[in-house]
């Protein structure tokens, strides 16, 4: 925008010059733009698009025919189960994260000044900490002799330690904890943008607090919830570290399956095909999401 107005101003100044000079200057401008965009385009082409392209050709390279690897994954009950489990896990984690994020975001939207700064730090700080560290912390806390079990036992709430680790409970706790900020930020933004006089108007017209919430506040903040839900869903689909550390063999996600194909079984075509099945799911989700929310604004929110 800045450059745009600058460009107009340049153009106005140039109108007195000859058309050949204008053409050469415009050519110069295009060269500058090209020189500025060149490095990033070369980088993305060589370090992102080309590797993914190699992976794609690898996925078609099975000796049993180009689509054999894709078919093998789709036909196997075990692999299908991993995909189904991952979808269910990602969906539930997104749901839980949104349910927890909603009241928290509401509180944040009511805070001002120092309290708001502290609360926002609490939301943003975990995003900066390595997923590995955040997951490791849960191993310490949730172990059989960990503080959580000891507190529950000293309060006589349970007689034997609960096994939180290496099962679904651990995966859910860890993944909700890691992904919660991604649900919270879009919901908070939506709540900040709610027109407060609307709520007063609803109140003044005799609506009960519940009616005001259900018919005004909730619909107005729903786009934020949708954005948060989809973002968490999207990120959870590809999750690797947290389920690998906190889950057991039953909690295998697609990402863990791909890793297994590459590092243990050394079947690259299957790994590549699995990765593209996963990408297909992600892209389908994005396609649905793009109808509701502006994801580019959400993804880079930190």
């Amino acid at each position: 925008m800045v450059e745009g107005s600058l460009g107009n101003w340049r153009l106005a100044r140039q109108s007195t010059a000859g058309s050949a000079t204008i053409r050469s200057q415009r050519l110069g401008q295009i060269c500058v733009t090209g020189a500025l965009l060149g490095p990033v385009l070369i980088f993305l082409a060589t370090c992102f698009i080309a590797p993914l392209g190699e992976l794609l050709s690898l996925s078609f390279s099975s000796s049993a025919g180009p689509l054999a690897s894709y078919r093998e994954i789709a036909a196997s009950g075990v692999y299908r189960q991993v995909f189904t489990n991952t979808l269910i896990l990602a969906f539930n984690v997104a749901l839980i994260a949104c349910l927890l994020a909603y009241p928290t975001a509401y509180m944040l939207s009511r805070l001002r000044g120092f309290a708001l700064s502290v609360a926002l730090w609490c939301v943003l700080f975990p995003l900066w900490i390595s997923v590995l560290v955040r997951t490791f912390a849960w191993i310490l806390l949730l172990g059989e002799n960990g503080p959580v079990n000891r507190i529950l036992m000293s309060g006589d709430l349970i007689s034997r330690p609960i096994s939180f680790l290496f099962n679904s409970t651990g995966v859910y706790i860890g993944m909700v904890h890691v992904l919660l900020p991604y649900a919270l930020l879009p919901i908070y933004t939506a709540m900040r943008n709610v027109d407060q006089p609307l709520l007063l108007a609803s109140d003044g017209l005799g609506a009960s607090p519940f009616q005001t919430f259900a018919r005004i506040y909730l619909p107005l903040t729903m786009p934020g919830v949708a954005a948060g839900f989809l973002l968490v869903f999207l990120l959870a689909l590809g999750f690797y570290i947290t389920p690998a550390m906190l889950g057991g063999m039953k909690n295998m996600t697609v990402a863990m399956l791909i890793d297994l194909f590459v590092t243990e079984q050394l079947v690259w075509p299957l790994a590549a095909a699995g990765a593209f099945w996963l990408l297909l799911l992600v892209l389908l989700l994005l396609l649905v999401a793009s109808r509701f929310v502006n994801l580019t604004a959400t993804v880079a929110a930190r």
Binding site: C47, F48, P51, L52, E54, L55, L234, L237, G238, Y240, V254, A255, I258, D259, V262, A271, A272, A275, F276, L278, L279, V282, L286, L295, V299, A300
Partner: peptide, 12 residues
């Protein structure tokens, strides 16, 4: 950021 990181990782 949208492509699953595991995919980028094995491709690289």
């Amino acid at each position: 950021l949208v492509v699953p990181v595991i995919m980028t990782a094995i491709a690289l």
